[in-house]
Amino acid sequence: MHDLKAVSSLFDLRGDFVHGYSYGSGHINDTYCIWVDQAGQRLRYILQRVNHNVFKQPIPLMENVKRVTDHALKRLKEEQCPEAYRRTLTLVPSVDGKPYALDADGNCWRVYPFIERARTYDQIETTRQCQEAARAFGEFQKLTADLPGEPLFETIPDFHNTTSRLAALKEAIQSDPLGRVKEVQKEIDWYLSREADCHLVVDYLKSGELPLRCTHNDTKLNNVMLDDVTGEGICVIDLDTTMPGSAIYDFGDMIRTATSPAAEDEKDTSKVTMRMFMFEALVQGYLSSAKSFLTPLEKSLLPFSGKLLTMECGIRFLTDYLSGDVYFKIHRPEHNLDRCRTQMALVESIEAQMDEMKAVVDRY
């Protein structure tokens, strides 16, 4: 483990390091909870090392996080929110006033005050939790909708560019480094038959028909902290992929990750389904905070967004399988293929219910 006391000394914590330990269930960054004694009062902070293998330019990433969190806090204060510092992440500056610190090995670190009396849930258990998490993501987009200045730095270029994802699949099919194409022709044909869908949002963004927004881009529902007492979604976390994007991407990933009862790598695809009651909870929560700024086109594309983001994820799994499983960690030989097929089943469930999904959105 890293020397947490030494790293903590790089930040303006105004106190004495007591102890720290690994914290949370994240797979990308190294996350620790540290206790600091400030004049006799012990407080908790979150200390994180940014994974520079995933995020190649951590300093521009941290400048993004600083801009977004500062602006969200400013907006919350303007609205006279009584819990402004609990409703957004805030960065503790380093001793030299930066929103990050570099250790002796060049690792990039950051510190957030610990948000008390709230937690995240790896498994969403109720429609209320689903609704609250979606409302919090909508609120996050609302708070950052008027972010001033230049566009945010793109921390992972073309992250949700489905045209680029499809092009990468075609390249993997063409090169076929492990000779796997012949085993998965059915899956390849399935995705290629939906090629037009992959271009739709990208083309709308290029033409300006869809606005480029400040979006989270990783809207798994465990990236929202829910209040321990009220269950209210109070704070969106994990801002590393916050960058320019479409509201469609954020809502679509909520549908992909929240509406099916099956695991992402479920072998029995008959268990995969888009549950309408979970979709309605997402719509109700999200539009309660996002309806005021979404354009009519954005709202009309909300049902389609789930299909698009699920296809994108399936394309990535299939591409990785054809390429030799080089990106996603696997635990069995056809793990990525199982994941790919699960996404296909979810897309088909969404397609079968699209008219009803549109009717749900129209009700809100």
Rank of each mutant, 00 (worst) to 15 (best):
Thr162Gln: 13
Leu152Glu: 00
Cys214Tyr: 04
Arg256Asn: 01
Cys108His: 02
Val202Asn: 15
Glu154Asp: 08
Thr90Pro: 05
Gln343Tyr: 05
Arg86Gly: 14
Ala101Gly: 05
Asp228Gln: 09
Val54Met: 05
Arg14Glu: 14
His160Asp: 01
Cys214Arg: 09
Glu132Phe: 07
Ile234Phe: 02
Glu187Lys: 11
Leu212Phe: 14
Pro177Trp: 04
Leu297Val: 04
Ile350Arg: 15
Glu209Tyr: 13
Glu154Lys: 05
Lys206Gly: 07
Thr242Leu: 06
Asp268Tyr: 08
Arg332Lys: 15
Asp176Trp: 10
Met278Asp: 15
Gln80Glu: 15
Pro261Gln: 06
Thr155Met: 01
Pro82Asn: 04
Glu139Pro: 06
Leu143Pro: 00
Gln38Asn: 11
Asn336Ile: 09
Asp253Asn: 03
Glu348Ser: 14
Thr215Glu: 01
Glu312Asp: 13
Arg42Asp: 03
Val326Ser: 10
Arg363Lys: 14
Thr120Asn: 08
Ile248Ala: 08
Asp146His: 00
Arg363His: 15
Asn222Asp: 05
Ser175Glu: 15
Tyr112Lys: 08
Lys142Pro: 12
Val92Gly: 03
His71Trp: 10
Val181Gln: 11
Asp176Gly: 04
Glu348Gly: 09
Gln80Trp: 14
Leu10Arg: 06
Leu73Val: 02
Ile28Ala: 01
Ser193Ile: 14
Ala84Val: 09
Cys130Gln: 08
Phe17Thr: 07
His71Gly: 04
Gly233Leu: 00
Ile34Arg: 08
Cys214Leu: 07
Ser289Gln: 07
His199Thr: 14
Phe317Arg: 02
Glu334Met: 11
Ser270His: 14
Thr319Asp: 00
